[in-house]
């Protein structure tokens, strides 16, 4: 394997050490990946939130309709 780690010894002059992290040069690609994930996260959140509320509204309305039917006062008034 030709891979050379950013740091391969700690015995050099510390003043000569720059970045400490591996894969120097990959920063831009990492940024793009992170932004893409975050974009997906926000898209997912907007969509799932809308779906969740639609579902909740349907359940609440359904339950209210059932209650209305089973309520004897409503039957009397009808």
């Amino acid at each position: 394997m030709n891979y050379k780690p950013t740091i391969d010894t700690w015995t050099t002059n510390p003043a000569d050490i720059g970045p400490l992290y591996p894969f120097v040069g990959s920063e831009f690609v990492l940024c793009l990946l992170c932004l893409a994930f975050f974009g997906l996260f926000m898209f997912w959140k907007f969509r799932s939130e809308r779906q969740t509320y639609d579902r909740q509204v349907a359940v609440i309305r359904e339950r209210a309709a059932k209650q209305e039917k089973s309520d004897p006062h409503n039957a009397d008034s009808a």
């Binding site: 510390p14 003043a15 000569d16 050490i17 720059g18 970045p19 400490l20 992290y21 120097v24 040069g25």
Partner: peptide, 10 residues
């Protein structure tokens, strides 16, 4: 924008 020891820039 990452861990760095301050040596010459890349």
């Amino acid at each position: 924008m990452a861990p760095h020891m301050g040596g010459a820039p890349q």
